[in-house]
């Protein structure tokens, strides 16, 4: 992850990232690889709102596990939505896997998101009336021109890894919160995406369960060679990531 002039990066986080890099050969290698996500001169404002997000430059390397942090209401989720193409910026450019998002039509953007991105939402966003199997395959089933074959072939193995294989045909509504979280992780990984966006996936979980979920996300992402871009305001969770972006500091910079 590279922060250029105008951006502010927490010194402690930089030191931690450097320390992690020195201890982890893979991370050192990653820092030298081509970035999978690039964002430059982003400006975003919700219509009719005073809230404004400005961001000079960000690069995330392939396979990196990056966390965006900051206090509640500072725009972490909005930032994640911008990078994943759910929201459009008013200015600036985002490139994911070499594709400039501004060049994509809304339909093409959906297709791109469906193909290249996996999402884990804070409230899981599982469809209650569907079984686990259908929930996990939802994005693939309703994806444009998507072949469900590889995803179906992968489903049992993935579900087995996260410990929900025996629940696949149950309706989601009968699951515990922890099981729902696992389903959300499976759904994000089932189509082997290049980037996983996780929006406070451990909010409202206790420490133990939060650790389990982060371990699951990181280990599954690693085994799938996926880049992780997560959002959290939980200080303990931040330590699990190699790269940290303190959005609060960035926003102050943008405002100044």
């Amino acid at each position: 992850m590279v922060f250029t002039q105008g951006s502010h990066y927490n010194q402690g986080h930089t030191q931690r990232a450097n320390l992690l890099a020195s201890q982890c050969p893979k991370l050192s290698a990653m820092q030298n690889t081509k970035p999978i996500i690039t964002a430059e001169n982003l400006v975003f404002r919700y219509p009719g709102s005073e809230f404004r997000l400005a961001f000079p430059k960000l690069e995330v390397a392939v396979g990196a596990h990056c966390v965006i942090t900051g206090p509640s209401g500072c725009g972490k989720t909005t930032w994640l939505r911008l990078l994943s193409g759910i929201e459009r910026t008013q200015a600036g450019e985002i490139t994911i896997k070499g594709q400039r998002l501004s060049e994509l039509s809304n339909t093409a953007m959906r297709d791109f998101r469906n193909r290249e991105c996996g999402f884990i939402f804070q409230d899981f966003r599982l469809v209650e009336y569907l079984s686990l199997r259908d929930n996990i395959l939802l994005g693939v089933t309703l994806g444009s021109k998507r072949d469900r074959g590889p995803a179906i072939a992968r489903l049992d193995e993935l579900a087995n890894r996260v410990g929900i294989a025996h629940l696949l045909d149950r309706p989601v509504i009968k699951l515990s919160r922890g099981e729902m979280q696992r389903v959300a992780v499976c759904r994000a990984l089932i189509h082997n995406p290049a980037v996983i966006f996780a929006d406070e996936p451990t909010a409202n979980l206790d420490r133990k369960n939060s650790d389990i979920i982060w371990d699951l996300i990181n280990s599954e992402a690693r085994s799938n060679d996926a880049t992780v871009l997560a959002v959290t305001h939980d200080a303990d969770s931040i330590n699990r990531f190699e790269q940290v972006v303190d959005l609060d500091s960035l926003m102050e910079t943008a405002a100044s």
């Binding site: 999402f119 089933t141 994806g143 444009s144 759904r187």
Partner: peptide, 14 residues
């Protein structure tokens, strides 16, 4: 649910 489908990038047509 429909918003979830949109977020997941599901095809509008589908």
């Amino acid at each position: 649910d429909l918003e979830t489908m949109r977020l997941l990038g599901c095809s509008r047509l589908l």
